[in-house]
Structures are given as C-alpha cells and as structure tokens.
Amino acid sequence: MKLKNKVAIITGGAGGIGRGIGMAFVKEGATVAIVDLDKESGERVLKELQEYSPDSIFIQQDLSKRDELPSIVEKVADAFGKIDILVNNAHASKMASIEKTTQKDLDLSFNTGFYPTFYLMQAALPYLKETKGKIINFSSGAGIEGHPNQGPYAAAKEAIRGISRVAANEFGQFGINVNIISPIAKSEGIMEWAENNPEIYDNMLKGIPMGRIGEVEEDIGRVAVFLASKDSDYITGQTLMVDGGSIKLR
C-alpha cells in the first residue's frame, strides 16, 4: 500500500493511460479524482476505481477552458482536505505535416496538453507544498525524436518537458518532486492508430527491444506508482522512458 491515504488528481482519467494509472493508484491505497470531458466513460471508470477506493470521484471538465482549471484543484481540496499527487496525463492532438498544420491544430494540442499541465501545477502548488507532493507529467517520443506529421503534438509535449524541468528546479525547495513519463502503451488512441497504420505500427514494434506495447496499468501505472511514492523522493526533473527501450536518453 505505497499510496495509502494519498489523494491524487489524474487528468484524462476516463480511459487509456489515465485509467491505468488510476487503477494502479487505488490498488495501492490512494483516493483518486479522475478528470475528463467524457462523462459516460468517466462514470464507468469511477465505478471500477470505487471497488478499491469508495471515496474516489469523477470531475467532468473541458480542460481547454483555461479559466475553469483552478476549480478542479479546489473541488478536490474541498472534498479531501489535501492534494498529494497531480498527474497531468490528458492531451488531444491532430496529426498533420508542418506544411499543413493550422493554428487550430496547434491550439488543440496546447490547449488540452501544455496549458492544463502548466495551470494545474500552478493551482495545485499551495496544496502540494503542504504535503511535499508529487507531480507526474507526460511527454512523448514524438517530441523527443521528432516524428513526422506530429508537429503540434511534439511541440506541446516538449513544452511540457521544458516546464517540468523548470518546475523541478523551483519546487525542489518545497520537497515537491516533478517527473515526466514518456510511454508507449496500449491506449485506445494508439491501438486505433495502429489499426489505421499497420505497416508503421509493425515497424514501431520492431524498434522496441522488449518486443511489445506496454500495458496501461501493469507497465505505465506501476511506474507512476513509483514516482508518486516515497520510493522516488530523491528523483526530480527526470524523463523516464517507459517504452520498452525504444528511446535511450543520454
């Protein structure tokens, strides 16, 4: 029970990696607030979480509504009296070459990925100071390696990595850890992409030394548990490549 009595916020928690992290957290004793725009999926996942953590909650929220982001933190703090862990997982994006990328494409990626990450860190900071909490943000190999046709996504993900390193330097004095996961996992989005791009998917699989796509709970969720627990107290500002060895950072 590495996260016993801990309170966590997980954005994009109604499916994919967010759901996997939520399930891993509640099995380790955490109370979880999942945040998502999809009400139906959010309520379904909440029932799964409540089998282990009856007090966990679902907050329906459009993360692109920047002025409403602090209300997420306030709702969780009002409900539980504290916040120990913030997981900024949500992100929506559209694939396009740089030549064909529009301002709308860029806005979608930054408004659902980078800006919520930034403003939720800012809003949660007073509470995380009190608990010496943990922040887990998400990057992607698309940004680290510069995958074609993923300009908006890559740009926002690398912006998240940049602000996470700044946050690690600024928040360390408060005992707050800020780390980044860069995953490859069987999320709904990845599997839909794989179905539409079988040749590219097969090539990607060949580039994974472990020879498989990660499981959202067992692989990604367990690393998130580590980063949210005391086991990672002396790690901050790092990008953990939870991708089966696809990218080896130096």
Rank of each mutant, 00 (worst) to 15 (best):
I34G: 04
G12N: 06
T101D: 07
S53D: 10
S93F: 13
P126A: 07
L69C: 08
D55S: 12
T11Q: 08
K75R: 12
I83H: 03
G16C: 09
V76R: 07
P54G: 04
P116G: 04
Y115V: 13
L86I: 05
F118D: 00
R66W: 00
F118C: 02
K82V: 12
V87I: 15
G16P: 11
K100L: 13
H91R: 03
M23R: 05
L69D: 07
D55W: 00
M121Y: 05
G20H: 04
G81Y: 09
S93D: 14
A30K: 10
A90V: 13
K47L: 02
D67C: 04
M23Q: 06
P126L: 05
A92N: 15
N88K: 07
Y115N: 11
A123L: 04
G16T: 09
Q122T: 13
K82S: 14
V45D: 06
Q50D: 01
M23C: 05
Y119L: 14
E99I: 15
A24E: 02
A30L: 12
E68F: 04
L125T: 14
E40L: 12
K94V: 15
G29H: 10
M23L: 15
N88W: 07
Q103F: 11
T102D: 00
S56T: 06
A92E: 14
E99F: 12
Q61A: 15
A33W: 01
S93W: 12
I9Y: 00
D62C: 10
L108D: 06
L63M: 09
E40K: 13
T112G: 11
K94R: 15
V26M: 04
A24P: 06
A96N: 14
D62R: 08
I85F: 03
G15F: 00
P126T: 06
G13W: 02
T112D: 10
L69M: 09
L86M: 00
K27I: 05
A92F: 13
I57S: 03
I34L: 08
T11L: 08
Y127L: 14
D107L: 00
V76Y: 07
Y119P: 05
E43Q: 15
I85G: 12
Q122K: 15
R44F: 11
K75Q: 15
M95D: 14
V45H: 04
